[in-house]
Design a protein around this nucleic acid. Structure first.
Length: 491
RNA sequence: CGGGGUGUAGCGUAGCCCGGUAUCGCGUCUGCUUUGGGAGCAGAAGGUCGUAGGUUCGAAUCCUGCCACCCCGACCA
């Protein structure tokens, strides 16, 4: 195996795949389309989870857990939802294996152990959850019901890519029920804001908040809101969605409540989710040809200390390093001292760069005697001498700088790859040139959207919430348009 | 599911056309020397050649079935 990664320039896709494996984030498993998330990758996911979970709790949500399996009769209750997911469901039909009489030592499915009703492995949990909510909700006093669950789901995708699209993935799904449409819409928008804040503050990933067109809407939703991000190859990635479900699921599962006034009404629903796909976004947005670049807020290890020493001097040096290590830890900075005696410094430098640790301190007796340490920041590769006297403050500040700096870099890339166009020719030229978001008028019909997708592979990513109304004409049909949409080729 | 391709050590591979002792690199292990940007030398371990059958004195190599994976398409919130 070559020491260097393929570059983004020569093969973006190979760069991504190699990076995910070499940084120890995930690998393909023995199961088609399913990945093994390795400890270092899972540590990043755990940091995402912890932060998001805090944000959910702060907005009044509680966690619960619902079954992996959904009886087919429940699954099919909300027709649009069922239809939307039907083609990618794993289905359990039997419950027992037996020895195969024809092939000694092998097992086969016991033909007598067929389930009376097939079980669908959840591709999303609306069905099982709403069938439960029917029992939980009787009165306006039971509302709003604000539940989240951390779970795995299965969608039998034809083509998979580590983190970006896998047959099984981890996510959270919030499912809420409300007395009024207004409240439910407010919840939908609130959670979109939570996602956007998380993406920008923690992943350092600038996102556009918007609403999906009917073509791209979640199956069973009245409206789908989303955050869209731009990757370094000019393709967009949907990073999170929040759905206003109207009364669709309440009606399908007969979830009604008595109002204060004594009436009987269906509740209003929302659902919202982000998945391990955020890992893909994180990787593709910031990393470079040397490996992963992690925002300090999500880095499992924020500072790695590499001791520089000669044979026999390691223990003595580690003693001198300890106060620095403890000082950083007391500041709440996660620090690792790479005291492996089996690898040389150059190897360690390269390895921690591959793993995206934001700050590296190389410390030898020479530095300590001079009252300095050498710091290297991962994002810019810049090296600087920090005075030993205030190393904790300096590193703390450095981590904040890095968090901000990689956000600004991603924002600059996004802004310089967002192009307003007024003709279809310009539209195509941008897509085939720099790529990125293309902001254009179109007539708002599904037909035009389909046509554009067929001809250019670009889809409407969203109608941004903050995009002002503006009269114009559709770049394809010339019909009037009141608003620009954001298009892009997407993952 | 359609078209194309590939299965050889932990990983990446040569050998296959034209049958005859299993090739090389990385990694791993041991020892010594090294250690401020991916160390050097010496030695060692590691293989049902995807799987089942066939042809043959003899199969990684030829033939057939099966399985798995990859790429392109279809599919994709």
């Amino acid at each position: 195996m070559s020491k260097k990664l393929p570059t983004r320039q020569e093969d973006y896709s190979a760069w991504y795949n190699e990076l995910v494996k070499r940084a120890g984030l995930a690998e393909n498993s023995a199961v088609r389309g399913c990945m093994v998330i390795k400890p270092y990758g899972y540590a990043i996911w755990e940091k995402m989870q912890r932060q998001l979970d805090d944000m959910f709790k702060r907005t009044g949500h509680e966690n619960a857990y619902f079954p992996l399996f959904v009886p087919k009769s429940l699954f099919e209750a909300e027709e649009k939802n069922a239809e939307g997911f039907a083609k990618e469901c794993a289905v359990v039909t039997h419950y027992r294996l037996q020895n195969d009489p024809d092939r000694p030592g092998k097992l086969r499915v016991d033909p007598n152990a067929k389930l009376e009703e097939e079980l669908i492995v959840r591709p999303t949990s609306e069905a099982i959850i709403w069938s439960t909510y029917k029992n939980w909700i009787q009165s306006y006093r039971d509302l709003p019901l604000l539940i989240n669950q951390w779970a795995n789901v299965v969608r039998w995708e034809m083509r998979t890519r580590l983190f970006l699209r896998t047959a099984e993935f981890l996510w959270q799904e919030g499912h809420t029920a409300h007395a009024t449409a207004t409240e439910a819409v407010a919840e939908t928008r609130q959670m979109l804001d939570v996602y956007a804040e998380f993406a920008e503050e923690h992943i350092a990933l600038p996102v556009v908040k918007g609403v999906k067109t009917p073509n791209e809407r979640f199956a069973g939703a009245e409206d789908t809101y989303c955050i869209e991000a731009l990757m370094q190859d000019g393709k967009a990635l949907q990073a999170g969605t929040s759905h206003f479900l109207g009364q669709n699921f309440a009606k399908a599962f007969d979830v009604q409540f008595q109002t204060k006034e004594g009436g009987l009404e269906h509740v209003w629903g929302t659902s919202w989710g982000v998945s391990t796909r955020l890992m893909g976004a994180l990787i593709m947005a910031h990393s470079d040809d040397e490996g992963l670049v992690l925002p300090p807020k999500l880095a499992p290890i924020q500072v790695v200390i590499v001791p520089i020493y000669k044979t026999g001097e390691l223990d003595a040096l580690l003693e001198r390093i300890r106060p620095i290590q403890q000082g950083l830890a007391q500041r709440g900075i996660s620090v690792k001292v790479d005291s492996r005696d089996t690898e040389r410094p150059g190897f360690k430098f390269a390895e921690w760069e591959m793993k995206g640790v934001p700050v590296r301190l190389a410390i030898g007796a020479r530095d300590l005697d001079a009252g300095t340490v050498e710091a290297a920041r991962r994002d810019t590769k810049q090296k600087l001498q920090l005075p030993l006297s205030d190393v904790v403050d300096s590193v703390d500040k450095l981590l904040n700088d890095i968090q901000l700096s990689i956000y600004n870099k991603a924002k600059h890339y996004r802004d310089t790859h967002t192009t307003r166009v007024d003709t279809y020719d310009e539209f195509k030229a941008v897509l085939d040139g720099p790529g990125g978001f293309v902001v254009a008028h179109y007539d708002g019909t599904s037909e035009t959207e389909e046509l554009i997708k067929e001809q250019t592979k670009a889809t409407v990513r969203c109608l941004p919430l903050n995009e002002p109304d503006e009269d114009g004409v559709c770049i394809v049909t010339g019909r009037p348009s009141q608003r620009r949409a954001w298009f892009a080729r997407a993952y």
